[in-house]
Nucleic acid binder design. Sequence first.
DNA 1: CTAATTTTGTATCGAACGATACACATGTAG
DNA 2: CTACATGTGTATCGTTCGATACAAAATTAG
Lengths: 224, 224
Amino acid sequence: MRYNNMGTAVKAGRPRSFCTDTVLDRAMTVFWRQGYEGASLADLTDAMGINPPSLYAAFGNKEGLFRAVLERYDALRQDLMNRVLAAPDPRAVARLFLEGVAEFAVHTEGRTPPGCLLVQSGLSCSDADIPEALAEHRAEKERALRERFERDKKAGRLPTDANPATLASYLVAMANGMCVQASAGATAEQLHNIVEVALAAWPGSGETSPSGTNDEPSWRAHPG
Amino acid sequence: MRYNNMGTAVKAGRPRSFCTDTVLDRAMTVFWRQGYEGASLADLTDAMGINPPSLYAAFGNKEGLFRAVLERYDALRQDLMNRVLAAPDPRAVARLFLEGVAEFAVHTEGRTPPGCLLVQSGLSCSDADIPEALAEHRAEKERALRERFERDKKAGRLPTDANPATLASYLVAMANGMCVQASAGATAEQLHNIVEVALAAWPGSGETSPSGTNDEPSWRAHPG
DNA sequence: CTAATTTTGTATCGAACGATACACATGTAG
DNA sequence: CTACATGTGTATCGTTCGATACAAAATTAG
């Protein structure tokens, strides 16, 4: 038995000619732009630069490839979620989350379509497993936010009558809605305007903030 | 030339055996539940109770049927939009709109899937005309809200520095986001909680309302 | 080296896709 | 009635779909 430079075992047989993450990134753009059912195997293999047998050997079938793409998508977004969850207070969590989503949704650098894969690639499909898988991935983010807000509430960083689940659900709904807008061509400025309005809804807005960050009301025509 | 009881001309030839709106309603549920590309012609003709030649004679092709379904969907939602736009002030517009969307999104009476056809049926497709058609229909609602808010601003029912376009975009994004939540199984109570938070963002919230409707802060755990 | 193992490229499978040809049914026009 | 026009049902078109069979290529194991 031989080992590579990472200490993992090298299997016998012909080695793979492609990098898993690279082909997943390419498949991601196809699913993102065309949706799960609109992405044909020919589209996928063309974009990935591999042939069908390689795809099926690596990912099982089309749904397996899609699920692998979703995991890869989460990994690419993990840094953002980590920064969001590391924010000092719930208001900063909300702001970093919505601003981060707005940034990702439009600032694609041509590598991906605008919007969010978890919203665009299959809310409705002939195979209900696909919308379900997407919903689970979205719910994962909502759960992380809710648990953060539950800790904030216990620590006194939210009013005692605040509802962490509702606040998390509000943020995720807002984010998903912004992604729908982005997929239809909304600009970064339009999304950031929406974010400013959305943050005005946050507990403590509209009054002098106890933390001293007295934000400008966000529904104004020309903030600043 | 003969005329029917509505005064319209009766064409020569064998008459249609189906009601256009009825078959469109049935096609709507298929597109809604399975998405544009996930809805096969066999699925559609089965649900509509007609054969392919009848479908093609009446609607041209699959995309033509889909566009007819979108028009039908708008017609079914027109009453809600009329009531929303007839509200006395912008805050009432926002509340009626979001509450109406929340109601429609979950209260389907088994006839349709939860959510919104304009969000679920094809944000991404191999044929880009479909997402574009959906975006136009969504933008139509946003435009109606924006024009209403522009009139409100001129009439002094909104602050002089309010941004009607941003407020309309915020409401539509919120509505679309709630529909995404609904499609994944959110309950009416969860959506209404989100609506309460969303309305707290509205200009004038957080202070004693000038109209005297001093709404309960909406991010509370147990409103009322 | 030979044997075993795994991936690759080509070529293609049966099923499902969107869309139609065509004969028959059912109406109006005169 | 005949002539014409339109819709319906069956049966099927060519294409594309997701998925594989198979043999050659490329590696490890001994």
